[in-house]
C-alpha cells in the first residue's frame, strides 16, 4: 500500500427538498417570530453606491413548468468590483451592500426578484477583467446538488465578448443562456433571466 493522503471527503450533498423555505426563509413560509428577518432579503441600504438594478426570473424544469419550490441565492461584487468578504484582499467593499441575496420565488408564479446594484469588474486569475456578472446558486426538490451558474448583462456586449470564461465556451449557441437582456421597467433597469434546468434551452451550469 502507498501512503495515505489523510484527507477527508466532503460531506455529500442532498436535495434541499420541498420545505427548504422553513429553514432558509421561515418568515416567507409563514413561520414568524423565530428570526426577525429572512437572511438575504435585502442586499443594500440607501447609502449603497452604484446603479440600482432589478434581476427577475424563473426556474423551469425539463417539461417547461416553472418551479415553485426553488431557492435561488446570488453572490456578487459591489459597484467597484470588490467582494464584501474577508477573503477579499484588494480593498474594502461598500459597507452598504451585502453582495448576498436569497429568494424563495413567488408562491404562485415562482418568480424570483433581487433588488441590487450592477456589479463592477472582477479580475480573472491572470488579471484580465471578467465581464460584470452575478453568481447564482439554485437548490430545490429534485435537485440533488446545488447548481452554480452566472448571470451576465445584456448591455455589456463588449465586456461579455472579452470575458475569459464566456469566450472559451465551445458551444457558442449556449452562451446566450447566461446573458440577461435589459428592459426598463418604470425607472429601473431590469434584467430578465430565466433558468432552464434541462432540455433544448438548458442553462449552462458550472463545475466550480
Amino acid at each position: 500500500m502507498v501512503q495515505s493522503l489523510d484527507r477527508l471527503k466532503e460531506s455529500p450533498s442532498q436535495t434541499a427538498g420541498p420545505y427548504v423555505h422553513i429553514g432558509c426563509t421561515p418568515n416567507f413560509s409563514g413561520i414568524e417570530g423565530v428570526f426577525p428577518q429572512d437572511l438575504g432579503t435585502s442586499m443594500l441600504n440607501d447609502g449603497a453606491k452604484g446603479e440600482r438594478i432589478r434581476i427577475v426570473g424563473r426556474v423551469f424544469d425539463g417539461v417547461g413548468t416553472a418551479l415553485k419550490d426553488a431557492m435561488v441565492e446570488v453572490w456578487q461584487a459591489d459597484a467597484n468590483g470588490l467582494y464584501p468578504s474577508p477573503q477579499e484582499t484588494r480593498g474594502t467593499a461598500d459597507p452598504n451592500f451585502t453582495g448576498f441575496g436569497r429568494s424563495a420565488g413567488d408562491m404562485a408564479t415562482g418568480e424570483f426578484v433581487f433588488e441590487t446594484i450592477k456589479p463592477g469588474n472582477v479580475p480573472f486569475k491572470d488579471g484580465r477583467p471578467q465581464a460584470p456578472h452575478v453568481t447564482l446558486w439554485i437548490v430545490a426538490r429534485g435537485i440533488n446538488i446545488g447548481l452554480h451558474t452566472r448571470l451576465y448583462f445584456g448591455d455589456e456586449e463588449a465586456a461579455n465578448a472579452a470575458d475569459p470564461i464566456l469566450s472559451r465556451i465551445e458551444h457558442r449557441s449556449r452562451v446566450a443562456t447566461l446573458i440577461a437582456p435589459k428592459t426598463m421597467e418604470g425607472e429601473i433597469a431590469t434584467y430578465r433571466h430565466d433558468i432552464f434546468l434541462q432540455g433544448e434551452k438548458e442553462t449552462i451550469f458550472f463545475d466550480v
Binding site: A77, I165, L197, D207, V208
Partner: peptide, 21 residues
C-alpha cells in the same frame, strides 16, 4: 425533469467563487 442533461462546464475558481458571504 430537474436534472441538467448537458455536461457541467468546468470553471477554475475565480474570486467570484473563492469569496462568499
Amino acid at each position: 425533469t430537474r436534472s441538467p442533461q448537458k455536461a457541467l462546464i468546468a470553471l477554475d475558481n475565480t474570486l467570484s467563487e473563492m469569496t462568499g458571504p
